[in-house]
């Protein structure tokens, strides 16, 4: 029982960072109807920028801010310079360009920063607090939870209460109609990319300290898991991404704990396939998002 509780807490805290990352994937999906396969690499790049600032100034919060800003800029840049010009004749174009971006970003990071793992400092203690004899969550985990929740609430407000949020949703779902109604669809796409990349940057800053540290390939596996989380929750639903992230975190923690660390990639695939084949819109889809 103790073991189960321990794995539950462990799963929730890793799940929270998957949730943050899945959120970024959902944002791009909502803005541009595509899965950004370069999200992981972009997040690593902004995290490098963030930690360069942290080690330069000694302030984690300044680094975090710069990383998020760098995310905004990188997202806008990728949309303006690359994605906008991908021909629509081939629907795979965007995925392939994104994968090219992965190779490019990882190689450039390797050239600039080297291939060493860099330690990532955190603003809060990572030592877990003990609740009733069971080590539960650490202050750092609480900070991750808090940050993710704040982002979810802010995004929900943005999409439901502000006109720019409304315009973004409109231009994603019905670009032609929106254009007729005077929405600058192109600009909304840029905003969507920038926003998603900023959330990805935040997720990167949250994820990296929990693993081996900063490395050009640090997010490879995280991307696959976060994609699963986003699909589980439904690519259309920010709340679904959070629940999906936590759920996937829990499942992987139980699998790692009870079946062994080797089996997780298999568990990811099984989960992904099960959700896609049984409930393709994700567990929390409000609309029939995907009809074949």
């Amino acid at each position: 029982m103790d073991r189960f509780l321990f794995l539950t807490f462990d799963g929730l805290s890793t799940g929270a960072v998957y949730a943050a990352f899945a959120l970024a994937l959902v944002l791009i999906w909502r803005a541009a109807r595509l899965v950004n396969f370069a999200q992981g690499a972009m997040a690593v790049a902004t995290t490098y920028v963030g930690y360069t600032v942290v080690s330069g100034t000694g302030s984690y919060w300044l680094g975090l801010g710069v990383a998020v800003l760098a995310g905004l800029a990188l997202g806008a840049l990728v949309e303006r310079v690359l994605m906008r010009f991908v021909g629509h004749a081939n629907p795979l174009g965007e995925v392939i360009v994104a994968l090219g971006l992965v190779l490019l970003i990882q190689a450039v990071l390797g050239m600039v920063f080297g291939n060493e793992y860099r330690p990532a400092t955190v603003p809060f203690d990572t030592d877990a607090l003990s609740v009733g004899g069971i080590t539960a969550v650490s202050p750092y985990d609480l900070w991750v939870f808090g940050a993710v929740m704040v982002v979810v609430v802010l995004l929900a407000l943005l999409f439901t209460r502000t006109s720019i949020g409304l315009r973004m949703r409109a231009s994603a779902f019905a670009p032609e109609v929106s254009r007729l109604l005077g929405v600058n669809v192109g600009r909304m796409l840029t905003v969507g990319w920038a926003l998603a990349a900023a959330v990805g940057a935040l997720a990167g800053m949250l994820v990296i300290p929990t693993g081996l540290g900063l490395h050009p390939h640090a997010m490879d596996m995280v991307f696959v898991v976060a994609f699963t989380a986003a699909v589980v929750g439904g690519l259309d639903s920010p709340a679904g991404a959070v629940v999906g992230g936590l759920l996937v975190g829990l499942i992987l923690s139980y699998v790692t704990g009870y079946l062994g660390p080797d089996t997780t990639p298999l568990a990811v695939l099984v989960l992904l396939l099960a959700v896609l084949l049984v409930r393709p819109g994700g567990l929390f889809s409000s609309v029939k998002a995907r009809h074949v």
Binding site: R3, T14, M221, S253, T256, G257, P261, T264
Partner: peptide
């Protein structure tokens, strides 16, 4: 045990502690 492709060592360390 751990595998190099899975950085989640928490459960393994938890088991040793338990």
């Amino acid at each position: 045990t751990y595998t190099t492709t899975n950085q989640q060592v928490g459960p393994a360390i938890g088991a040793l502690k338990a």
